[in-house]
Design a protein around this nucleic acid. Structure first.
Lengths: 344, 344
DNA sequence: CTGTTAGCGCGTTCAA
DNA sequence: TTGAACGCGCTAACAG
């Protein structure tokens, strides 16, 4: 049963392999007489024939596979992104080949290498850091590369993004509106453009409103809970005085910050408001429910998938896109010094 | 730059392609003189040569790729599982090829078909439902198949599992110990063996302790939050009287149950205790923090990865394994009618 | 130590 | 409408 080849099918149907090939190719089945076609299809089914995609790719130069690189599959933010990509690829019967860098450059390099060797039809990366730029543009000389979610500023590669600058401004504006005058950011790794932009957008809006930003030394190594917790503890330990609101650069970090607050005996939002980023669905039931900037990750994923397909078609250059953020207000942000938001 | 072949490298180095092949194969490089080897390696680097894995697979009959099937990448429970698998595969420089069924049989079939066509070296599935059994055993006639996380009872396929029966007994025992005498289960889909076993283990332990199980009509279509919420609402609406504790069959469903309780104006744990399953790391900060049966998913993943490797080696039959559960007590369970657990 | 030959499974010529 | 021949890129087996 294993290793049934086209040759076997042809023999069973009493035809030449190339006739069998034609009969089994939807695009060419009308070059074969109905009668023989049926015989061949029957034989293929009976023998359990399965085309060898490796061999087909060798011949056709296409593998019906798109490499997808994520930084951290444990971040619930990436799931909708992957769903969006898979949905878009389904239109051309391609399958994503998913791999995870864990934000490690060397691992990223190995993954790219493997994908190129595997001759994927295109690569979508949601894991880019600035240090990866050259490597990615290099890869793009072999295979179309689409940048998704994590921007690569100044790169000519097509990008499916989200406007992090506006998103962070939205976050800051919300805090300003609530009356906060002392705030702080817990920065994600700044060599990920998104976090650099969030830092910039947030600061810009604060400055404009005359709001004081309490400095927090350092940034997260990775945008994960443990790092958010670490930075929050550092902020609590500093003697610059506590802010009344903090902006961890994503929901995972916000979760860590909440843990740190609790460990320090502080309450959110009574003592400190917390505003996250991504509006990760699975985290909407934290204690307290997190105010967060919503990231349209499914849509970004779909756009990236479509762009990957388009760049494979060779139908000219592919346009980058950038989708807007929205703000989702929940219980973790209130005016400074006030009690919990009514209704929660 | 694209499409540099071994032939090109050989030409550039002034040798025969097979010599170049040997020089570039770590396992055979000592069959080539140091001098020519260096020349070949240099030429390969200069030209940006990358082996064509499709072609190599065609020749060698191995693709250095293992298909990994998950039911739902949005379930945080699967991430450690995937990490475990990837870690194990790294030992033989294989890469996982990840796909998602979304608990849809037809999609599962397409995925298996694609993976077999791709000639992956083995398949690890964490998405099995009883209806998938025949299909999987069929696939196993072509390629080694390892069942992970979701059991396929009675199947001869090698399985890397967890003892769900004991786990559910642990959950029930905990509730019994707290003094609950009226409890209920929110059942996951029973065609997933794990949930069937959880149902059975929980009931058995309750019966033995003389605890009453309030019936909940129906089961979840999929083990996700929305379904947990739906079942909890159904339980609240029934006139069998409320239990003092509920056991949703996994953490995601527990999250939905918590939402339903809140919507009904009930508090957890004061009015109803909730105990989940999986001890999903990312959910440890729910309101209230969830008591849960811990599932060693990373370890199960590693075991599955090793089993996949072993079954590819052809070194005899592969032993199934089953890892034990442990209980992690947090704030969502207290004695019936009592206030919140002190310390939380 | 290196070159030659052959073929993995398939699809695309070109002829019949 | 079908068959024959060739080659995609690589490597195993066999010579030399």
């Amino acid at each position: 049963m294993p290793g049934v080849t086209l040759h076997d099918v042809a023999a069973a149907a009493g035809v030449h392999p190339s006739t069998a090939s034609r009969a089994l190719d939807p695009a060419k089945e009308d070059l074969v007489s109905e009668a023989t076609r049926r015989r061949i299809v029957a034989a293929a089914a009976r023998l359990g024939y399965r085309p060898h995609l490796g061999a087909r790719g060798l011949k056709r130069g296409r593998t019906a596979t798109v490499g997808v690189v994520a930084a951290d599959l444990g971040n619930p933010f990436v799931t909708p992104l992957l769903h969006g990509i898979a949905a878009a690829l389904e239109a051309v019967r391609s399958l994503p080949f998913i791999a995870e860098t864990q934000d490690d450059h060397a691992r990223f390099e190995r993954i790219l290498d493997h994908m190129l060797s595997r001759r994927v039809d295109a690569i979508i990366t949601t894991a880019a850091r600035t240090a990866d730029r050259e490597m990615l543009e290099d890869a793009a000389r072999h295979t179309p590369v689409v940048i998704a979610a994590r921007a690569l500023p100044g790169s000519p590669l097509p990008q499916a993004l989200h406007d992090d600058l506006s998103g962070a401004e939205l976050a800051a504006a919300h805090l300003v509106e609530l009356g906060h005058v002392r705030v702080a950011q817990l920065r994600g790794p700044l060599d990920v453009a998104n976090f650099a932009q969030r830092a910039e957008g947030f600061s810009a809006r604060c400055t404009r409103a005359g709001v004081v930003e309490v400095p927090v030394a350092g940034t997260a190594d990775r945008p994960v809970g443990a790092e958010g917790r670490r930075l929050m503890h550092r902020l609590l330990a500093s003697d610059d005085g506590l802010p009344t609101a903090v902006f961890p650069h994503n929901d995972l970090m916000a979760l860590g910050a909440l843990a740190a607050l609790e460990e320090a005996g502080l309450r959110c939002p009574e003592d400190v408001s917390v505003i996250g980023y991504n509006d990760t669905e699975i985290l909407a039931r934290t204690a307290p429910p997190l105010t967060s900037v919503s990231y349209p990750s499914r849509e970004v994923g779909e756009a990236a998938g479509r762009m990957a397909i388009a760049s494979t078609d060779g139908s000219g250059p592919v346009e980058s896109v950038s989708l807007p953020p929205t703000l989702v207000v929940r219980a973790s942000t209130t005016p400074p010094g006030s009690g919990p938001r009514p209704g929660w």
